[in-house]
């Protein structure tokens, strides 16, 4: 397949088209996409996938700009997948993350793709995993996945990335009480941004709140330590520590096999998800082709049969097809 070669050669337009393909909702594209991905999986790269999540306004994109600048200066190749929420009403979206990634977006060693979430659960859009496989095959050293909101931490951390980091702002320690458990479980790194100017002391305080919060977490011997880091995206301070921490966690997890186990689990989950989607799609098709739902619900409304009888009958009917 020509596209595969182009991707491996790192051709920008080919990578972009491939991502469009894996994001497409068209049935034909889905088939093509599966073929493409299975070929690319045979040619894995060496990327580390890092997730960045956090509430709106904490400066995620600004942090990625700042950290990214630090990395490309060190000659790393950086792929970024930024997921923006789509409007629930119109389905359209404004993809504005790149307005905050000014310097790195110019750099030839970056590839930055924004994707509308299209209302998919967890804010992870359809195709994000596949897109990261494409960027991996294309030779990017790091793949950053950025999403809005904390609610999706679990999905992202367990399904998509090797390291999951949560970006928070000064003062957010107060909110910790309620969400302590989930966060301490899923995040590998806590990045307290805006450690600058007037906010410095507040940022330090927030960092110690997080430190004490993760100390509650029962530490097992075979996982890398969770870290809390102070950075300023605007002043570009603390970046060295971030990359150091990422590399430490990766090497520690690789040593104790955690790294591979995590990826293996993600594969299992992925297979399960795909199977579920295919079955769901088939059922949907059957439901569409089968007129019994509307017929039977009319009968329910007319009081001819009980609702649960109808459901039973429809299910039987679909299973037998």
């Amino acid at each position: 397949m020509q596209l595969v070669e182009k991707i491996i050669k790192g051709e920008r337009a080919a990578i972009a088209k491939a991502i469009t393909l894996v994001e497409s909702s068209r049935e034909n594209d889905k088939k093509e996409s599966r073929k493409l991905i299975s070929e690319l999986l045979n040619k894995p790269g060496k990327s580390i996938r890092v997730g960045f999540s956090g509430p709106p306004g904490v400066g995620k994109s600004t942090f990625i700009e700042s950290f990214g600048r630090y990395l490309v200066e060190k000659n790393y190749k950086l792929g970024i997948l930024a997921i923006d929420p789509s409007s629930q009403i119109t389905g359209g979206s404004i993809l504005g993350d790149k307005t905050r990634m000014i310097e790195i977006s110019k750099n030839p060693n970056t590839f930055i793709r924004s994707t509308p979430s299209r209302g998919s659960l967890g804010g992870i859009s359809v195709g994000t995993r596949e897109a990261s496989i494409i960027l991996d095959a294309a030779g990017y050293d790091f793949i950053f996945i950025e999403t809005v909101g904390v609610g999706q931490s679990e999905t992202m951390a367990t399904n998509l990335v090797d390291i999951f980091s949560l970006i928070v702002g000064p003062g957010s320690g107060d909110e910790l009480q309620g969400i302590k458990k989930g966060i301490t479980e899923y995040a590998d790194i806590f990045i307290v941004n805006k450690n600058d100017g007037d906010l410095k002391s507040e940022a330090s305080k927030t960092a110690s709140d997080y430190k004490s919060a993760i100390s509650y977490y029962k530490k097992s011997n075979d996982t890398a330590d969770k870290e809390v880091l102070l950075v300023s995206a605007i002043e570009q301070t603390g970046m060295e520590k971030v990359i150091e921490t990422i590399q430490n966690i990766v090497s520690q997890n690789k040593k104790n096999k955690n790294f591979d186990e995590r990826r293996a689990k993600q594969f299992t989950y992925w297979i399960e998800e795909e199977v579920r989607e295919i079955i769901q799609f088939n059922i949907q098709k059957k439901i569409k082709a089968d007129g019994s739902i509307s017929q039977l619900s009319q009968k329910v409304m007319d009081g001819k049969i009980q609702m649960f009888e109808a459901i039973e009958a429809i299910t039987q009917n679909l299973q037998n097809k």
Binding site: R12, A13, I15, A16, K17, I19, T20, S86, S87, T90, G91, G92, S93, I94, L95, G96, K98, T99, R100, M101, I102, S105, K106, F111, I112, R113, S114, P116
Partner: peptide
């Protein structure tokens, strides 16, 4: 904002871009 309200996916570029930056942005986001 109005195109997005009509259902388009709209990418916003940063201010003060060079034509080269815009081309990279456009192609990466297909």
């Amino acid at each position: 904002t109005s195109f997005a309200d009509m259902g388009f996916d709209v990418d916003m570029g940063p201010l003060f871009q060079s034509p080269k930056d815009v081309a990279k942005d456009a192609i990466e986001n297909d």
